[in-house]
C-alpha cells in the first residue's frame, strides 16, 4: 500500500533529509527522467516542472507521521526528514529504489535555480538540442547561454552516473 509514497520517503531517507519543497520537486523529476521509478505526474509551471501529486504525497506522509516537516529559518524553506514511524513504514516495503547516494549527493549540492534549469531542459529532452536551448531561452529570458551550456554538461554527467545506481537495488 502507498508504494509511490514509500518511494518518496525512501529518497528522503537515502538523502539524509531534503531541504526545500522546490528542491525536492526538481530532484524527483530529474531522477524520474534518469529512469528511477518515480511515476508522479509533472506539468510545466512558471518555475519549471512541478507535480501537484508529489506535493500532496508529501503532505500525506506528514499527516501519517512518517515525515517530519520543519521550518529551516536560515534558508527560508521547509526541511523534510524521516521519522521513526517512517522507518517502520519503509520496513514493510523492501527495496523500492536503487541506491541513489551517488546521484543524490550531486543533486543536493546544487542551487535550486540550477536544478530548475536542469529540470526544465530535461522537460524538453525530446526536442533536438538547438530547439531545447531556444525553448529554454524563450521561457527564461534572463538565462545566459553559459548557464544553459553548463546545465547541459551537468545533464550529461548525471546520465553518466546512471549506470552506477541502475545496477544496484
Amino acid at each position: 500500500m502507498l508504494e509511490e509514497h514509500a518511494k518518496v520517503a525512501e529518497l528522503i531517507r537515502q538523502a539524509g533529509g531534503i531541504n526545500g519543497r522546490r528542491k525536492l520537486q526538481k530532484i524527483v523529476y530529474i531522477l524520474q527522467k534518469l529512469g528511477v521509478p518515480f511515476y508522479e505526474t509533472y506539468h510545466f509551471q512558471v518555475h519549471g516542472p512541478y507535480s501537484e501529486e508529489l506535493s500532496l504525497q508529501l503532505e500525506e506522509l506528514c499527516d501519517f507521521g512518517f515525515l517530519n516537516e520543519s521550518w529551516d529559518s536560515e534558508n527560508g524553506q521547509v526541511a523534510y526528514s524521516l521519522t521513526h514511524g517512517g522507518e517502520e513504514f519503509l520496513n514493510g516495503h523492501g527495496h523500492l529504489l536503487p541506491d541513489l547516494s551517488p546521484i543524490a549527493e550531486k543533486l543536493l549540492a546544487q542551487q535550486n535555480s540550477f536544478l530548475e534549469l536542469t529540470a526544465a531542459m530535461l522537460y524538453f529532452d525530446t526536442l533536438p538540442t538547438e530547439k531545447v536551448i531556444e525553448k529554454v531561452q524563450s521561457l527564461y529570458r534572463e538565462m545566459k547561454h553559459e548557464q544553459i551550456r553548463s546545465a547541459m554538461d551537468y545533464i550529461a554527467t548525471l546520465r553518466g552516473t546512471r549506470s552506477e545506481f541502475q545496477t544496484v537495488g
Partner: peptide, 22 residues
Amino acid sequence: EVDSSSDCPYDFYRPGEREERQ
C-alpha cells in the same frame, strides 16, 4: 486498495511555497 487525495486529479486553492507555482 488505498485511495488518497493524491490519486484524485482535482485540488483546491493553496498559495504554495514561494516560487513553486503562480
